[in-house]
């Protein structure tokens, strides 16, 4: 299999994701509205209740909106990653997954291509959100918008890989509600996205440890530090390790036979 073939296949997978994304404008809008609601409505209500002390990477007192902005960026990546599992299940049920499987290109490469395509689309949405957040008064350093890019790529890959891994476990489209309740919400709320972990520790020691073991916490911290031009090495190591682990799990658990059984034939 030569390099050109793999690149053309990668190009095809990315283009298809973009075509689908462009056609699903409501998906783009909801991806922006969701974190904006948190930023504008939720943060306004909780600003007074949740005072944030000076904690790294911030060097001064910050508004609550500023604190939750990186978490909301990761929220976009989280929802997109899980959406990818939904689209894989949809492709499987509709039969279009077979087109992917009939390709002579190695399946592991096709899955990695899919992962990168999901990441690219997610990151576009994050930057659109950061633009709107800027208008709402969240103003990270301009260079931070550049230094955060590698962190966003890594986190998008991690969450996309978790999504692809889950898609191998989800038998039907209807089961996606379970993903919302058992994956997205716990990952998001049991992390440092909305409140610093020392605050969580004040309330509950065991919840604090649950948050510590949640890879999403470290993904949020990686993005938070990168947005302020700093590198959080432990967060980077954990996020990178989890990305490799879940990418391997996604590739290993990908079972083409399920693709055929999802749409039983009669003949």
């Amino acid at each position: 299999m030569n390099l050109n073939t793999c690149l053309y296949a990668f190009n095809g997978v990315v283009k298809r994701e973009f075509w689908r994304f462009i056609q699903q404008r409501s998906r783009f809008l909801s991806a922006l509205v969701r974190p904006l609601l948190w930023l504008v409505v939720f943060a306004a209500g909780f600003r007074a209740a949740l005072g944030v002390a000076i904690i790294p990477p911030y060097q001064t007192y910050i508004t609550y909106e500023t604190y939750i902005a990186p978490g909301l960026c990761c929220m976009i990546l989280l929802f997109n990653g899980m959406q990818s599992s939904l689209s894989m299940v949809y492709d499987r049920e509709m039969g279009s997954m077979k087109v992917l499987l009939m390709s002579p290109v190695p399946r592991s490469w096709l899955l990695v291509s899919k992962l990168l395509a999901i990441a690219l689309i997610s990151i576009l949405q994050v930057y659109a959100f950061l633009g709107l957040a800027w208008l709402a008064g969240v103003e990270p350093p301009l260079w931070g918008l550049v230094t955060v890019l590698p962190a966003l790529v890594l986190v998008a890959l991690l969450l996309g890989a978790i999504g692809l891994f889950l898609s191998a476990r989800i038998r039907q489209l209807e089961n996606f509600a379970g993903v919302m309740n058992f994956v997205i919400f716990p990952m998001f709320f049991l992390s440092s996205a909305l409140y610093p972990l020392w605050k969580m520790r004040e309330s509950s020691e065991w919840l604090y440890w649950v948050c510590q073991y949640n890879p999403f916490t470290h993904a949020v911290e990686l993005v938070r530090f990168a947005l302020y031009q700093q590198l959080n090495l432990p967060a980077l190591a954990i996020t990178l390790g989890c990305t490799v682990l879940f990418t391997l799990l996604a590739i290993l658990s990908f079972n083409p036979e399920r693709t055929v059984r999802a749409a039983p034939a009669r003949g």
Partner: peptide, 27 residues
């Protein structure tokens, strides 16, 4: 295949482009 495997939301050309790319064809 017996069951359609086309992506209904894409155009005819886009469906063909996707398939061609997966078989290593240039644009």
């Amino acid at each position: 295949f017996q069951q359609s495997t086309l992506d209904l939301d894409l155009t005819v050309q886009q469906n063909l482009e996707y398939h061609g790319a997966l078989h290593g064809l240039s644009s």
